[in-house]
Amino acid sequence: MAKGKKTCKILKDIRKQIAEENDIQLITEECTYKGDCRGTCPRCEAEVRYLERELEKRQRLGKVAVFAGMSLGTMISAASCDTTEPFSKKEPLAGDVTTEVMVPPQPVDPDTVIEEPLMGIVPWYHNVFFFDEETYDSLLKDLFVYPDMEKLTVIKGKLPYEHLGDGSECNTLEKLVAETREFSAPSYPGGEQQMLKDIAEGLKGKVINGRYKGVMEVAFNVTPEGNVETVKIENGLNVNLDAAVIALFEQMKWNPARYKLENGDSSVFECRCIQKIAFPLK
């Protein structure tokens, strides 16, 4: 069996095991290519990209990717691979399983009476607004997209966790959206350009080693008081720059999200935002 085909088989087995460990549906086909190959091809690479996207979706739902310690020694033997000198005479990795899977808090019993309005409860993995039953009923059920934010999703009444779970439930969730001209997202005083200037000013003089080019995504809550909390870097560039940006955001004051009620009053809500920042800052 040519070396490339053996490598291909082993990598395919790794992909299958990743899919199984993380409950991802992966349909693979037996490769019918007859000649020698490098061990990978566009189809194999596409499977890897698919797995990465699925794992990222699960991470957004609070699940950590599970990688059992895959024993390459066993896979290589199974592929009847004629390897070159082995790295060491150590035993192959044991198949110990890491089971650090974070799950959201357990859902509230649907029959539980919730006495206080659930405004202000925000899960970290979604832009979600919570309204009481009355407010929700007055909203239109269409998608609202802000130019510099991810899609917003509105959840009716109860805690959202009962709606959230695997991908299929998330799709249902995405249908529960609202559009209103009476709603305003959180905003930085002075606008986005002012925010970028302030970030640049805040980073001035700091020596930050590591990658400094790319688009960073910063996720954070803006409380009804305008404070910034629960800052998390969703797509960081390097640990030093990420930490510096988190520190800056935690000091910021934003204008909170507002919704105009039917009686003309406006009400503030906690909102989770995702802000994209392109480095280097201009």
Binding site: R38, G39, L93
Partner: peptide, 12 residues
């Protein structure tokens, strides 16, 4: 050189 399998360290 990609996909070295145990020849230059454990794992891929």
């Amino acid at each position: 050189s990609r996909h070295r399998l145990t020849t230059d360290g454990d794992g891929c």
